[in-house]
Amino acid sequence: MFAEEKLIPVPFDVYRFDPAQGGEPRYQHYELKLAPHTPVLSGLLKIRDEVDPTLALRYSCRSAICGSCAMLVNSKSRLACRTPVGPEVAKHGRVVIDPMRNQPVLRDLVVDQRGFWSNYRRIEPRLLLDPSRPMPEGRPTQMTPAQVDRFRETPRCIACASCYSACPAVEADPEFPGPMALAKLYRFVVDPRDGAHDERLRKVQLSGLWLCLRCHLCTEACPKDVRPSERIRDLKELAVRSQGATERGSRHAVGFLENIAEAGQLNEMKLVRQTDGLVGTVGQLGQGLRLARKKPELLKKPRTIDGVEEVRKLYEALQKDEEVPL
């Protein structure tokens, strides 16, 4: 059952760079022999211990709980401690190690996480109490099973920044606080002890919530199955329900909702008007006309689907319902 695994050759190509020493980033090659289930971290530590003690990286618990050793393993954001070398070698023939993305390299695999942490602090990650609802004296708060169920995923987060590294919105726009911060915010927004839900939802709409691309790269990168993209979706719905269609993002979402109720399918130009308002739409006019030359349908009212009244009935039945955790 636990037969000794045969050792396999594991070629490592590890990113090396020390800005203090100058020079260009390069890859350093190391040849190891390891059992296929050996975690990448163990391989890197073996390099440090036996071959090259100058390799810099962060690590601590080696059991996927401290969040230190996130890095790119063959371009994928991974915790080195829980990524076995075998499948990587099988697929890529080698193990290429790079520092995480979206954080400047301090040295080798060590990145500067100050931006990551300051984005996390931006969402005020602590209970904010409503003075009119103090904590019960001398005893814990009570929670309903439904309230407890809201904490299914987020407490698993170990702040390893794998999601932050994988996120194209972080890469493209400093306004976006990143998946981890938003998943963390969700954890506070659904916490019955917190007294600032609406305020939090109002603020986050102004600080990047609607820049999430829903690309789910964070959910794919997350080693703890926090599923940040899904938590961000939850936050958006809670924001719409709490604040209404106040921002471009929420206007677009609500516009979409109304659009479908009307015709059962999308009216692209109308949606632009709903999101941008009249002035914004005029700003888009040039591009709109440019597109319409090739795609004249944009100027026509789209067809209404058969049975649109069924769609409206669904709306009537469910639209007023409370939000259901998905």
Binding site: V240, N259, V324
Partner: peptide, 26 residues
Amino acid sequence: FPNFSCCGSGFLDEANGLLNVALNAR
């Protein structure tokens, strides 16, 4: 099926997740 509706395109989901599921369930 001329009675198929829009899938919600990810936007409806952000406004009302349950409705989005129901629309696609239809």
